[in-house]
Amino acid sequence: MHHRPWRDSRDAGLPQRHPGTLERIGRDPDSCKVLFVVTPYVGDTREEAQSLFDRTHAATDWRAEEALAHLSAFTEIDFSRFDLDERIPDGLTTNGH
């Protein structure tokens, strides 16, 4: 999959939504890079960054609990009250995001 790289902050619409913000804080709008839902993994080498990514995304009980905690925060449903090996009950409602 190929994504067109953003050339500057205008590609993300930042100046249109918040005109003058970057200038007010002393930044050139053309120098600002906006990352949405991006988690960079940085290491001294590509292998070190890959190792960090692999450790972070390893399937563990902790990762499952973390994912459920995030889902609970978004949906305002406490998923810790459900058995992980059972189907989630029908009829749940949420006022979450």
Rank of each mutant, 00 (worst) to 15 (best):
H2I: 14
H2Y: 15
H3Y: 14
H3R: 12
R4N: 10
R7G: 08
D8I: 03
R10D: 03
R10H: 13
D11L: 04
D11T: 06
D11V: 05
A12I: 02
L14W: 09
Q16T: 09
R17F: 12
R17I: 12
R17N: 08
R17V: 10
P19Q: 05
G20M: 06
T21E: 08
T21Q: 09
T21H: 09
R24H: 13
I25T: 07
G26C: 03
G26R: 02
P29N: 09
D30G: 12
S31E: 15
K33P: 01
K33M: 14
V34M: 03
V34I: 14
F36L: 14
F36Q: 12
V38F: 08
T39R: 12
T39L: 14
Y41N: 00
V42F: 10
G43R: 01
D44W: 12
D44K: 09
D44A: 14
T45K: 04
R46N: 12
E47A: 15
E47F: 12
E47W: 11
E48A: 14
E48P: 01
A49L: 04
A49Y: 06
A49K: 01
Q50C: 11
L52T: 08
L52C: 05
L52Q: 07
L52G: 04
F53S: 01
A58K: 10
A58H: 11
A58R: 12
A58G: 08
A58W: 05
A59T: 13
A59L: 15
T60W: 01
T60Y: 03
D61E: 12
D61Q: 09
W62A: 10
W62I: 09
R63Q: 13
E65C: 06
E66A: 10
A67F: 08
A67V: 05
L68Q: 06
A69P: 00
A69R: 09
H70V: 15
L71F: 11
S72A: 05
S72V: 04
A73F: 14
F74V: 09
E76Q: 13
D83Q: 01
D83P: 00
L84T: 15
E86H: 06
R87K: 09
I88S: 05
P89Y: 07
P89N: 01
P89G: 02
D90K: 04
L92C: 08
T93D: 07
T94Y: 00
T94D: 01
T94N: 00
G96R: 00
